[in-house]
Computed example of a mutant assay.
Amino acid sequence: MADQAGPEPVAAVRRALRLLEAVGAHRSGATVQQLAREAGLPPVTVAELLPGLARDGFVTDLGDGAYVLVDTGTGSGAARDGRELHERVRPVLTALRNDLSAAVYLTLYEEGEIRVMEIVDSARTPRVDLWVGFEDAGHATALGKSVLRELDGEARAEYLSRHTLTGLTPRTITRREELLRQLDTSSAAPLVMDREEYARGTTCIAVPVYSGDQVGSLGISFRSDRMYRSDRVREGLLASAIRVSRRLSLPG
């Protein structure tokens, strides 16, 4: 089921990524007005976003009203290297695990499959037993459904044509029509939940993340008998999703 959080946090991620792309096109720096035109954003929005990107270490204020991307010292393909990806996002995932006391997962949609890229857990916050691979369980997890909801109709239909909606627990949705209805209900809400659809006794909550044009998901899992303040989970996941998306999308 989807949490009613509204579209703004997801839109904020997309605005930040468009701005980073515009900044990256100017090796000598670009002004707020230039970046606003190229990113298709209002100048006031760009002016509000840039200080946060600077604090997070993604852009540098040259002091004359111009901004450039921070030099990471890596090659253009490094961000796609597995080790580089881990180095970029693991601190954010670890902080989220510690803040919410829950195992944290990152997925990306690659070559038509939902792939788990990173899991950060601990003895106190164990991961769910991945007894069925995500390639066969996207319909049964919040992480998978978060990705499926972001795909366009054609890509979603293509994915579902290749994957059987297997019943993993009594709560798993196994009818395509019901799954599509759930994905399309409150589609503006950024949070998705599965309660014991993948594994009995486990609840998962996820939000979308982006690596350029590539969609993925960020989520947590915890015992279903644990109680969480929904606003704390929402705020923690959405703030972390923005940071993860920036780190995945920042040019190397």
Rank of each mutant, 00 (worst) to 15 (best):
A2Q: 08
A5D: 03
A5H: 09
G6I: 02
P9H: 02
P9I: 03
P9Y: 08
V10S: 11
A11I: 15
V13H: 11
R15T: 02
R18I: 03
L19N: 02
A22S: 05
G24C: 14
A25K: 10
R27E: 01
R27C: 07
A30L: 07
V32R: 15
V32E: 09
Q34W: 08
L35H: 05
P42W: 05
P51A: 04
G52P: 05
A54R: 12
V59D: 00
T60N: 06
D61Y: 02
L62R: 06
D64T: 05
V68I: 12
V70S: 00
V70P: 01
D71G: 05
T72R: 15
G73Y: 02
T74Y: 07
G77C: 13
R80Q: 13
R80F: 14
E84N: 04
E87Q: 13
E87K: 15
A95F: 13
L106Y: 13
T107L: 11
L108H: 09
G112D: 10
I114D: 00
V116K: 08
M117Y: 12
D121K: 05
A123D: 13
V128S: 00
D129E: 14
L130H: 03
V132H: 02
F134E: 08
E135F: 13
A137I: 05
A140V: 01
L143F: 02
L143S: 01
V147I: 11
L148V: 00
G153D: 14
R156D: 03
E158W: 02
L165R: 09
L165Y: 11
T166P: 12
G167V: 14
T169M: 06
T169V: 01
R171F: 05
T172Y: 15
L180F: 09
A189C: 07
P190W: 10
L191G: 04
G201W: 11
T203L: 02
A206M: 09
A206W: 01
V207E: 04
V215I: 10
G216P: 01
G219R: 06
R223P: 12
R226D: 04
Y228D: 02
S230Q: 04
V233H: 00
S245A: 06
L248A: 05
L248H: 13
S249K: 09
P251K: 15
